[in-house]
Design a protein around this nucleic acid. Structure first.
Lengths: 208, 208
DNA sequence: CCATCGATGTGGGCGATGTCAACATGATCG
DNA sequence: CGATCATGTTGACATCGCCCACATCGATGG
């Protein structure tokens, strides 16, 4: 127990973040209000200022927690997937990303909200996002080492992979592709990420 | 003889949308305020209410105009790309999407902002977004007909393609991949979309 | 030609918000 | 034990979204 001993409330900062997330999931990000959050936690309207310089700082903290949760979920999936089939492992990682997004849609929206677009203002947030990216890069490199991923700059490949899963997540959350079940859409997208849009010359059927 | 502004503006609605976009590009979406927009156009703070039920309606109108602009840009690129090389045409479409996003980053953020996430409240916005999607689907179908795109449900394939370009656009706008030039990232992502992550030559244990 | 009426813009007001400044409280430590 | 500073409170202010009653314009019909 280091300086974690709370003074008055008992770790108000985390309580505010939790309440903020709860509020966002109930009524959406635009409904997030410093005063309402303070009300829910049971402190006065100015108390949050001791922990968050402004509203954007609170949003950034919620987003940061989201990235950490996403990273943890991906890391867990990565560890539990069979290491000997690298393509499956990478695939599982992509599915995990989208799954997390669908499980916490509002949270993901916060993570990529315009309100925290300027990540240079929120270094902690930038670091958390970077960590997620690095998980992906690591898996790409491992896939390349085992011959399951095409050669090339791992940064470029992982950027493409991240683009796909992230775009997939966003579009599903926004209901742009709601005509079929989310799971099917995820599978289709990850398949395409794996195989490409161009026809494969050898007429070899892959699993779907 | 100063220009006397008539009591009735003439086309206040469009003027408000333009001013809103301008304001957003200057200071970001959170800074968008009905009153400030009214101020810029030179009307009183309540005038916008005659044209937009609430703030969200104005944001939706800006987003809708963004989708229309994106659709027009894509359609122009599609028409000007050589029709005889369908894979190039599809590729140009994807690049056009990301280019537009990079040229109007704030505008794109508005289009996918949480504030207009519930598109059922804004039918016009939903229609404009749908049109962009359909441009993509059309090109996929054409590509399939000419053998340049792998067979499969066009909706699934176009969803994957849209996911990739959209994710690419968002990540670039958010500066998540700023280490290399945007153009190179776009190319790399579109290449991967085309070819897939898996090695193209079906090689088993090719090493050594 | 003019009275009428719906559409559009004005001016004022209300409750809520973010942020600031001054003050109160209590945990921690010399 | 008393000082000190982080933490929470109280009060205030400008601004915001939204609502209202009223003013003004322009088209319409008799």
């Amino acid at each position: 127990m280091r300086k974690k001993r709370p003074y008055h409330h008992g770790n108000l900062r985390q309580a505010l973040i939790d309440a903020a997330l709860e509020l966002i999931e109930e009524r959406g990000l635009p409904a997030l209000t410093l005063r309402e959050v303070a009300r829910r936690v049971g402190v006065t309207h100015a108390a949050p200022q001791r922990h968050f310089a402004d509203r954007a700082a609170l949003v950034a903290a919620v987003a940061e927690q989201g990235f950490r949760g996403l990273g943890a979920h991906m890391e867990a999936v990565r560890a539990s997937a069979p290491a000997r089939v690298p393509s499956q492992r990478l695939r599982a990682l992509g599915v995990a990303y989208v799954e997390y997004a669908l499980a916490h849609p509002e949270h993901l929206r916060v993570m990529f909200s315009p309100e925290v677009a300027d990540k240079s203002r929120h270094p902690q947030l930038a670091a958390a996002a970077q960590e997620v990216h690095e998980t992906l890069v690591k898996q790409i490199v491992e896939g390349q080492r085992q011959g399951a991923v095409a050669p090339g700059d791992p940064d470029e490949l992982s950027f493409a992979a991240w683009s796909m899963v992230h775009g997939c997540a966003i579009l599903l959350i926004d209901g742009q592709a709601s005509r079929r079940s989310p799971a099917a859409s995820i599978d289709a997208a990850v398949d395409r990420l794996h195989l490409g849009l161009a026809p494969r010359a050898p007429a070899r059927k892959r699993r779907r």
